[in-house]
Nucleic acid binder design. Sequence first.
DNA 1: TATGGGGCTTCCAGCTGCTGGAAGGTCAAG
DNA 2: CTTGACCTTCCAGCAGCTGGAAGCCCCATA
Lengths: 131, 131
Amino acid sequence: MNIAEVAKAAGLPAKTIRYYEDIGLIHPKRGENGYRDFSASDLHKLAFVGRARSLGFSIVECRALLGLYEDQGRASGDVKALAMTHVAQIRSKIDELRAMDATLSKLIQACHGDQRPDCPILAGLAKPAVG
Amino acid sequence: MNIAEVAKAAGLPAKTIRYYEDIGLIHPKRGENGYRDFSASDLHKLAFVGRARSLGFSIVECRALLGLYEDQGRASGDVKALAMTHVAQIRSKIDELRAMDATLSKLIQACHGDQRPDCPILAGLAKPAVG
DNA sequence: TATGGGGCTTCCAGCTGCTGGAAGGTCAAG
DNA sequence: CTTGACCTTCCAGCAGCTGGAAGCCCCATA
Protein backbone atom coordinates (compact mmCIF):
# COMPACT_ATOMS: atom_id res chain seq x y z
CA MET A 1 0.00 0.00 0.00
CA ASN A 2 1.33 3.43 -0.74
CA ILE A 3 0.74 6.52 1.24
CA ALA A 4 -2.39 7.88 -0.43
CA GLU A 5 -4.18 4.60 0.00
CA VAL A 6 -3.21 4.32 3.65
CA ALA A 7 -4.10 7.94 4.25
CA LYS A 8 -7.57 7.32 2.98
CA ALA A 9 -7.98 4.11 4.95
CA ALA A 10 -6.66 5.57 8.19
CA GLY A 11 -8.46 8.87 7.75
CA LEU A 12 -5.24 10.84 8.16
CA PRO A 13 -3.51 13.27 5.78
CA ALA A 14 -0.45 11.88 4.03
CA LYS A 15 1.59 14.69 5.54
CA THR A 16 0.61 13.56 9.00
CA ILE A 17 1.59 9.99 8.25
CA ARG A 18 5.01 11.11 7.07
CA TYR A 19 5.29 13.12 10.23
CA TYR A 20 4.38 10.10 12.33
CA GLU A 21 7.11 8.14 10.64
CA ASP A 22 9.49 11.01 11.24
CA ILE A 23 8.90 10.94 14.97
CA GLY A 24 9.11 7.18 15.02
CA LEU A 25 5.53 6.11 15.63
CA ILE A 26 5.59 3.84 12.60
CA HIS A 27 8.33 2.31 10.47
CA PRO A 28 6.93 1.44 7.06
CA LYS A 29 9.37 -0.30 4.77
CA ARG A 30 10.47 1.14 1.47
CA GLY A 31 10.05 -0.16 -2.04
CA GLU A 32 12.81 -0.25 -4.68
CA ASN A 33 11.74 3.17 -5.86
CA GLY A 34 12.00 4.72 -2.41
CA TYR A 35 8.26 4.89 -1.93
CA ARG A 36 6.88 3.92 1.46
CA ASP A 37 5.22 0.55 1.42
CA PHE A 38 2.73 0.19 4.27
CA SER A 39 1.74 -3.14 5.75
CA ALA A 40 -1.64 -3.93 7.25
CA SER A 41 0.00 -3.60 10.64
CA ASP A 42 1.22 -0.10 9.78
CA LEU A 43 -2.29 0.82 8.82
CA HIS A 44 -3.68 -0.54 12.06
CA LYS A 45 -1.18 1.44 14.06
CA LEU A 46 -2.02 4.61 12.18
CA ALA A 47 -5.72 4.11 12.71
CA PHE A 48 -5.05 3.40 16.38
CA VAL A 49 -3.05 6.58 16.76
CA GLY A 50 -5.66 8.52 14.84
CA ARG A 51 -8.34 7.42 17.28
CA ALA A 52 -6.18 8.10 20.29
CA ARG A 53 -5.43 11.57 18.95
CA SER A 54 -9.10 12.24 18.38
CA LEU A 55 -9.67 11.39 22.04
CA GLY A 56 -7.19 14.08 22.89
CA PHE A 57 -4.15 11.97 23.78
CA SER A 58 -0.87 13.73 23.11
CA ILE A 59 1.73 12.23 20.82
CA VAL A 60 3.73 11.17 23.87
CA GLU A 61 0.69 9.42 25.27
CA CYS A 62 -0.04 7.84 21.91
CA ARG A 63 3.46 6.48 21.83
CA ALA A 64 2.94 4.94 25.25
CA LEU A 65 -0.45 3.55 24.26
CA LEU A 66 1.01 2.09 21.10
CA GLY A 67 3.73 0.47 23.18
CA LEU A 68 1.16 -1.08 25.48
CA TYR A 69 -0.96 -2.09 22.51
CA GLU A 70 1.95 -3.96 21.00
CA ASP A 71 3.07 -5.50 24.25
CA GLN A 72 1.14 -8.71 24.65
CA GLY A 73 2.21 -8.92 28.27
CA ARG A 74 1.01 -5.47 29.32
CA ALA A 75 -1.06 -4.94 32.43
CA SER A 76 -4.44 -3.41 31.70
CA GLY A 77 -3.92 -1.40 34.88
CA ASP A 78 -1.18 0.58 33.14
CA VAL A 79 -3.49 1.46 30.29
CA LYS A 80 -6.26 2.39 32.66
CA ALA A 81 -3.95 4.63 34.68
CA LEU A 82 -2.85 6.46 31.55
CA ALA A 83 -6.44 6.91 30.43
CA MET A 84 -7.56 8.12 33.83
CA THR A 85 -4.84 10.72 33.99
CA HIS A 86 -5.90 11.90 30.60
CA VAL A 87 -9.57 12.08 31.53
CA ALA A 88 -8.63 14.13 34.56
CA GLN A 89 -6.83 16.58 32.30
CA ILE A 90 -9.83 16.75 30.00
CA ARG A 91 -12.09 17.50 32.92
CA SER A 92 -9.93 20.23 34.27
CA LYS A 93 -9.82 21.77 30.82
CA ILE A 94 -13.61 21.60 30.68
CA ASP A 95 -13.83 23.33 34.04
CA GLU A 96 -11.50 26.03 32.88
CA LEU A 97 -13.52 26.59 29.72
CA ARG A 98 -16.74 26.65 31.67
CA ALA A 99 -15.38 29.34 33.93
CA MET A 100 -14.45 31.40 30.87
CA ASP A 101 -17.88 30.81 29.42
CA ALA A 102 -19.56 31.92 32.64
CA THR A 103 -17.55 35.11 32.93
CA LEU A 104 -17.95 36.02 29.30
CA SER A 105 -21.62 35.20 29.22
CA LYS A 106 -22.24 37.59 32.08
CA LEU A 107 -20.36 40.36 30.34
CA ILE A 108 -22.13 39.70 27.08
CA GLN A 109 -25.51 39.80 28.76
CA ALA A 110 -24.70 43.14 30.30
CA CYS A 111 -23.74 44.64 26.94
CA HIS A 112 -26.51 46.24 24.92
CA GLY A 113 -24.48 45.75 21.75
CA ASP A 114 -25.52 48.73 19.70
CA GLN A 115 -23.85 51.73 18.08
CA ARG A 116 -22.97 53.41 21.36
CA PRO A 117 -19.42 53.11 22.70
CA ASP A 118 -20.41 52.26 26.26
CA CYS A 119 -19.43 48.63 26.79
CA PRO A 120 -19.45 46.45 29.91
CA ILE A 121 -17.33 43.83 28.16
CA LEU A 122 -14.46 46.24 27.66
CA ALA A 123 -15.04 47.62 31.13
CA GLY A 124 -14.83 44.11 32.53
CA LEU A 125 -11.56 43.49 30.76
CA ALA A 126 -10.19 46.83 31.88
CA LYS A 127 -10.71 46.21 35.57
CA PRO A 128 -9.56 43.50 37.93
CA ALA A 129 -12.07 40.69 38.24
CA VAL A 130 -14.47 41.40 41.05
CA GLY A 131 -16.52 38.23 41.25
CA MET B 1 8.38 51.87 35.47
CA ASN B 2 10.72 49.21 34.27
CA ILE B 3 9.80 45.77 33.18
CA ALA B 4 10.00 43.86 36.46
CA GLU B 5 7.72 46.32 38.15
CA VAL B 6 5.19 46.23 35.34
CA ALA B 7 5.39 42.46 35.16
CA LYS B 8 4.47 42.21 38.80
CA ALA B 9 1.68 44.76 38.50
CA ALA B 10 0.20 43.21 35.37
CA GLY B 11 0.67 39.66 36.56
CA LEU B 12 2.58 38.71 33.42
CA PRO B 13 6.13 37.39 33.00
CA ALA B 14 8.66 39.91 31.71
CA LYS B 15 9.32 37.61 28.77
CA THR B 16 5.69 37.78 27.79
CA ILE B 17 5.68 41.56 27.99
CA ARG B 18 8.71 41.74 25.70
CA TYR B 19 6.94 39.40 23.38
CA TYR B 20 3.85 41.59 23.39
CA GLU B 21 5.98 44.54 22.44
CA ASP B 22 7.59 42.45 19.73
CA ILE B 23 4.26 41.69 18.11
CA GLY B 24 3.13 45.27 18.47
CA LEU B 25 0.52 45.08 21.20
CA ILE B 26 2.28 47.76 23.22
CA HIS B 27 4.88 50.40 22.44
CA PRO B 28 6.66 51.38 25.64
CA LYS B 29 9.19 54.15 25.24
CA ARG B 30 12.84 53.70 26.01
CA GLY B 31 15.08 55.43 28.51
CA GLU B 32 18.57 56.74 27.77
CA ASN B 33 20.03 53.42 28.79
CA GLY B 34 17.88 51.45 26.38
CA TYR B 35 15.65 50.12 29.12
CA ARG B 36 11.93 50.01 28.48
CA ASP B 37 10.04 52.69 30.35
CA PHE B 38 6.39 51.80 30.82
CA SER B 39 3.65 54.35 31.30
CA ALA B 40 0.48 53.79 33.30
CA SER B 41 -1.30 53.38 30.00
CA ASP B 42 1.11 50.63 28.96
CA LEU B 43 0.40 48.88 32.21
CA HIS B 44 -3.35 49.15 31.69
CA LYS B 45 -3.07 47.70 28.26
CA LEU B 46 -0.98 44.81 29.51
CA ALA B 47 -3.43 44.06 32.27
CA PHE B 48 -6.27 44.29 29.76
CA VAL B 49 -4.57 41.84 27.44
CA GLY B 50 -3.72 39.57 30.34
CA ARG B 51 -7.38 39.37 31.31
CA ALA B 52 -8.51 38.85 27.75
CA ARG B 53 -5.95 36.06 27.35
CA SER B 54 -7.14 34.42 30.54
CA LEU B 55 -10.64 34.40 29.08
CA GLY B 56 -9.23 32.49 26.14
CA PHE B 57 -9.08 35.24 23.53
CA SER B 58 -6.35 34.69 20.97
CA ILE B 59 -3.66 37.29 20.39
CA VAL B 60 -5.43 38.34 17.22
CA GLU B 61 -8.64 38.82 19.15
CA CYS B 62 -6.79 40.67 21.89
CA ARG B 63 -5.39 43.03 19.31
CA ALA B 64 -8.88 43.70 18.03
CA LEU B 65 -10.23 44.15 21.56
CA LEU B 66 -7.42 46.52 22.39
CA GLY B 67 -8.22 48.49 19.26
CA LEU B 68 -11.85 48.76 20.28
CA TYR B 69 -10.84 49.59 23.83
CA GLU B 70 -8.74 52.50 22.62
CA ASP B 71 -11.28 53.70 20.11
CA GLN B 72 -13.58 56.08 21.93
CA GLY B 73 -16.01 55.94 19.04
CA ARG B 74 -16.38 52.15 18.90
CA ALA B 75 -19.78 50.52 18.74
CA SER B 76 -20.40 48.18 21.65
CA GLY B 77 -22.08 45.92 19.12
CA ASP B 78 -18.68 45.18 17.59
CA VAL B 79 -17.27 44.15 20.93
CA LYS B 80 -20.27 42.03 21.69
CA ALA B 81 -20.04 40.30 18.33
CA LEU B 82 -16.41 39.46 18.94
CA ALA B 83 -17.16 38.14 22.38
CA MET B 84 -20.09 36.08 21.17
CA THR B 85 -18.04 34.45 18.46
CA HIS B 86 -15.46 33.60 21.07
CA VAL B 87 -18.02 32.15 23.47
CA ALA B 88 -19.35 30.02 20.66
CA GLN B 89 -15.85 28.65 20.10
CA ILE B 90 -15.46 27.95 23.79
CA ARG B 91 -18.72 26.09 23.85
CA SER B 92 -17.88 23.96 20.88
CA LYS B 93 -14.57 23.13 22.51
CA ILE B 94 -16.42 22.15 25.66
CA ASP B 95 -18.71 19.92 23.65
CA GLU B 96 -15.75 18.29 21.99
CA LEU B 97 -14.06 17.66 25.31
CA ARG B 98 -17.23 16.30 26.81
CA ALA B 99 -17.55 13.83 23.97
CA MET B 100 -13.99 12.68 24.59
CA ASP B 101 -14.72 12.41 28.28
CA ALA B 102 -17.83 10.34 27.64
CA THR B 103 -16.08 7.93 25.29
CA LEU B 104 -13.06 7.54 27.52
CA SER B 105 -15.10 7.17 30.66
CA LYS B 106 -16.99 4.29 29.14
CA LEU B 107 -13.80 2.56 28.11
CA ILE B 108 -12.26 3.13 31.51
CA GLN B 109 -15.28 1.72 33.27
CA ALA B 110 -15.10 -1.39 31.15
CA CYS B 111 -11.46 -1.97 32.02
CA HIS B 112 -10.73 -4.00 35.11
CA GLY B 113 -7.32 -2.43 35.35
CA ASP B 114 -5.26 -5.21 36.84
CA GLN B 115 -2.21 -7.24 35.89
CA ARG B 116 -3.90 -9.07 33.04
CA PRO B 117 -3.29 -7.89 29.47
CA ASP B 118 -6.92 -7.96 28.41
CA CYS B 119 -7.95 -4.33 27.94
CA PRO B 120 -11.15 -2.78 26.57
CA ILE B 121 -9.45 0.60 26.31
CA LEU B 122 -6.88 -0.67 23.84
CA ALA B 123 -9.56 -2.69 22.11
CA GLY B 124 -11.65 0.43 21.76
CA LEU B 125 -8.76 2.31 20.23
CA ALA B 126 -7.97 -0.55 17.91
CA LYS B 127 -11.41 -0.72 16.36
CA PRO B 128 -13.55 1.85 14.57
CA ALA B 129 -15.94 3.64 16.89
CA VAL B 130 -19.24 1.82 17.06
CA GLY B 131 -21.43 4.11 19.09
C1' DT C 1 8.88 6.44 -27.70
C1' DA C 2 7.73 10.94 -26.18
C1' DT C 3 4.79 13.46 -23.18
C1' DG C 4 1.78 14.90 -19.71
C1' DG C 5 -0.30 14.59 -15.31
C1' DG C 6 -0.44 12.68 -11.27
C1' DG C 7 1.83 10.71 -7.08
C1' DC C 8 5.87 10.14 -4.64
C1' DT C 9 10.18 11.88 -2.28
C1' DT C 10 12.90 15.31 0.74
C1' DC C 11 13.62 19.50 3.11
C1' DC C 12 12.57 23.97 4.89
C1' DA C 13 9.50 27.35 6.79
C1' DG C 14 5.62 28.76 9.43
C1' DC C 15 1.56 28.55 12.46
C1' DT C 16 0.36 29.95 18.27
C1' DG C 17 2.10 31.90 22.37
C1' DC C 18 5.21 31.89 24.69
C1' DT C 19 9.68 30.19 27.39
C1' DG C 20 14.58 29.15 28.32
C1' DG C 21 19.15 30.38 27.81
C1' DA C 22 23.40 32.68 26.24
C1' DA C 23 26.10 36.84 25.80
C1' DG C 24 26.62 41.20 27.18
C1' DG C 25 25.41 46.21 28.94
C1' DT C 26 23.84 48.84 33.28
C1' DC C 27 22.91 50.16 37.85
C1' DA C 28 23.15 50.54 42.88
C1' DA C 29 25.26 49.03 47.12
C1' DG C 30 29.20 48.24 49.85
C1' DC D 1 36.04 48.63 42.18
C1' DT D 2 33.59 44.71 42.56
C1' DT D 3 29.53 42.14 43.04
C1' DG D 4 25.07 40.84 41.90
C1' DA D 5 20.71 41.96 40.26
C1' DC D 6 18.75 43.95 36.81
C1' DC D 7 18.23 45.03 31.79
C1' DT D 8 19.06 44.24 26.68
C1' DT D 9 19.07 41.29 22.21
C1' DC D 10 18.90 37.16 19.67
C1' DC D 11 18.32 32.33 18.83
C1' DA D 12 16.21 27.91 19.68
C1' DG D 13 12.54 25.00 21.03
C1' DC D 14 7.91 23.27 22.77
C1' DA D 15 3.19 20.59 20.06
C1' DG D 16 1.49 18.84 16.02
C1' DC D 17 1.13 19.45 12.16
C1' DT D 18 0.68 22.03 7.34
C1' DG D 19 2.08 24.35 3.04
C1' DG D 20 5.15 24.72 -0.55
C1' DA D 21 9.28 24.12 -3.48
C1' DA D 22 12.25 21.13 -6.13
C1' DG D 23 12.81 17.04 -8.11
C1' DC D 24 12.02 11.78 -9.04
C1' DC D 25 8.79 8.11 -10.67
C1' DC D 26 4.96 5.75 -12.86
C1' DC D 27 1.39 5.03 -16.05
C1' DA D 28 -1.54 6.00 -19.90
C1' DT D 29 -2.16 7.85 -24.15
C1' DA D 30 -0.77 9.51 -28.75
